[in-house]
């Protein structure tokens, strides 16, 4: 599999798996307006996965694949999303903090991809579109981090707990392999140290301003890019894929 296809599928997998998680909030949000906003963002993520998978199908040397193939007919080890995307939602602090940490990663990664200079290719255009919605997601999740961080003793405590749990998973953002390095070399992906610097700068500032200290734990997640997942991934896929597995090619 060539690096461009692999990289595109990984982005698609991140979007689909997190979108699936976020959509679990539908009907369970803390209040009506937030429920709609979260479901709306979830749809943005799922829509993003569709765009990326459709593009991937167009460059996949195996013909006849489509977005449904990538979403519904691949097994756990074939999904190369980052593990942070598949973690269960937890409480709203955990959900919001994950969105914040991941939205910022998305803005940086897709911005670089949108500047990828490859004439007549639709990928930079897709990325530019995604940067717009990601920027809104980031603005939204940043405000929520501030509200919950500065809210009550309880909300601050829950944010602290969420940060402890999530921090090690963010290390995976910077766990580059040869596919990422190949994308860096053609100018379609931020250099690792640049990504780490830009991401840390904003994230640490926002967290510091709401008195959330970075965890001291040095534990780091890894393996998502190689198809190694947490115990939560299997159940997520089972739920997401059950209809297509039971009734292949079923459509509405």
């Amino acid at each position: 599999m060539n690096h461009l296809l692999k990289y595109t599928l990984r982005l698609g997998d991140n979007a689909l798996i997190l979108g699936q998680r976020m959509s679990e909030w539908c009907g369970h949000g803390p209040f009506l307006e937030e429920d709609i906003a979260m479901a709306n963002s979830a749809l943005d993520y799922v829509g993003r996965a569709r765009l990326l998978y459709t593009y991937a199908a167009s460059i996949d040397s195996v013909k006849g694949r489509d977005e449904d193939f990538y979403a519904f007919r691949r097994d756990e080890a074939e999904f190369e999303n980052l593990q942070i995307c598949e973690l269960p939602n937890g409480d709203y602090a955990f959900t919001i903090l994950r969105q914040f940490l991941f939205d910022h990663y998305c803005v940086l990664v897709y911005r670089a991809l949108s500047r990828f200079d490859k004439p007549s290719d639709q990928l930079p255009g897709l990325a530019a579109k995604i940067v717009k919605e990601s920027s809104f997601h980031l603005a939204r999740s940043t405000k929520w981090v501030q509200r919950l961080g500065l809210g009550t003793i309880e909300s601050n405590l829950r944010m602290k707990r969420a940060l402890e749990e999530l921090w090690g998973y963010t290390r995976e953002f910077f766990d580059y392999d040869e596919t990422d390095r190949s994308m860096v070399s053609i100018g379609a992906c931020p250099e690792k140290e640049k990504l780490r610097f830009d991401w840390s700068n904003l994230v640490e500032k926002v967290l510091f301003d709401v008195s959330l200290k970075l965890p001291e734990s040095k534990w780091e997640a890894n393996g998502g890019r190689q198809g190694v997942h947490t115990e939560h991934m299997g159940k997520l896929l089972a739920e997401m894929q059950v209809l297509q597995r039971r009734y292949p090619s079923l459509s509405w």
């Binding site: 009506l32 307006e33 709609i36 906003a37 709306n40 939204r140 405000k143 509200r147």
Partner: peptide, 20 residues
């Protein structure tokens, strides 16, 4: 109408609730 903590929050929610 909608519920929100402040103007910024109202603006964000209005975007999701009424302009999607």
């Amino acid at each position: 109408s909608l519920h929100a903590a402040n103007a910024e929050h109202a603006m964000e929610s209005a975007r999701d609730v009424y302009t999607r």
